[in-house]
């Protein structure tokens, strides 16, 4: 007994100098792990779990899906192309109104200027990958009730409730299409300027996106502006809020700032070349 106490004392003494017992330096209980190697000798190497006789004993592993002569399950039903062209569809990664409000509260986005893809990407918290068929951001309705900012924002997709949430605060929302090349530039404008290449022209939307971006209900950038102002009023009546008058707003100029359908950056025209080193703009002369 005394011997046992002595050894346990020794163990405890040793434990004090050892690192803390935690998940990283524990080892499995003895005999809890099975040996990976199979025995080869008379009784160690009997069946190795492969059973007695037949296909099983020969370890004749059949190919995946093969049902020993039956029509295999994976061939039993005719093919239905549910996901045809799925890998080619345009994607719009979500940006929720809550996220946007956090970005504004933490001073990552300046709401005294119009917001577009470049502003969102320059915040450093969201990225856009045009190479993975991401065609811009969609503004989603999470945090809709707590959204209180007056902004001029341009996104690529927005639902009706989101449009109402932005316009209720006296803001302006627009949905606009950018072709992948322009998206690549907008995802990192500084890198593009450093290349020393003229700003390209923005392409028009593809055929299947024209209907969306010419619809005033979606606040499309190709829609008739008069129709949009009418739809703003209609939406205000539908959701039951009084539409703030932008004409009387002190930030009228910022709120009505919009890009041309062929323009990539606010205030900068296609064909111009930006020199960041000399702080010079090279403009082609008009002929």
């Amino acid at each position: 007994m005394a011997n046992l106490r002595e050894s346990s004392d020794k163990a405890l003494k040793l434990l004090r100098t050892l690192p803390r017992v935690q998940i990283g330096n524990l080892r499995p209980n003895p005999n809890s792990k099975q040996n990976d190697k199979r025995g080869r000798a008379q009784h160690g190497g009997d069946k190795h779990g492969a059973g007695n006789k037949g296909s099983g004993q020969r370890q004749n592993f059949m190919r995946l899906g093969y049902e020993t002569g039956n029509q295999p399950f994976y061939l039993r039903f005719p093919y239905e192309p549910y996901y045809k062209g799925h890998h080619l569809r345009r994607q719009y990664p979500p940006l929720s109104l809550l996220q946007l409000q956090v970005l504004i509260d933490t001073n990552r986005i300046d709401i005294s200027q119009p917001i577009d893809i470049a502003t969102i990407c320059n915040s450093g918290l969201l990225t856009l990958k045009p190479a993975e068929l991401e065609y811009g951001f969609q503004l989603t309705d999470h945090g809709l009730d707590n959204f209180k900012a007056k902004i001029n924002i341009e996104v690529q997709h927005a639902s009706e409730a989101v449009i109402a949430a932005v316009e209720r605060n006296g803001g302006v929302i627009r949905t606009a299409y950018y072709d992948p090349r322009c998206l690549h530039i907008l995802a990192n404008p500084k890198k593009f300027f450093q290349k020393g290449v003229p700003i390209p022209k923005r392409m028009l939307p593809p055929q299947d996106a024209v209907a969306y971006y010419t619809d005033a209900k979606n606040r499309g950038y190709l829609a008739n502006p008069e129709e949009i102002s009418k739809e703003r009023l209609v939406l205000a009546q539908k959701y039951g809020y009084e539409l703030p008058r932008i004409e009387e707003d002190p930030q009228y100029e910022m709120l009505t700032a919009a890009k041309d359908g062929r323009q990539l950056f606010y205030g900068l025209e296609p064909g111009w070349l930006i020199n960041l080193v000399d702080k010079v703009i090279v403009k082609p002369k008009e002929t």
């Binding site: 320059n122 900068l268 403009k283 002929t287």
Partner: peptide
């Protein structure tokens, strides 16, 4: 094509707006 090199262009403010901040801004 003929070009015009503009120093101190009034549009430079739009370029500065597109440059990301170097550090995380203070709220």
């Amino acid at each position: 094509p003929e070009v015009e090199i503009v120093h101190n262009a009034p549009e430079w403010k739009y370029v500065e707006r597109l440059l990301p901040p170097r550090i995380v801004p203070q709220p």
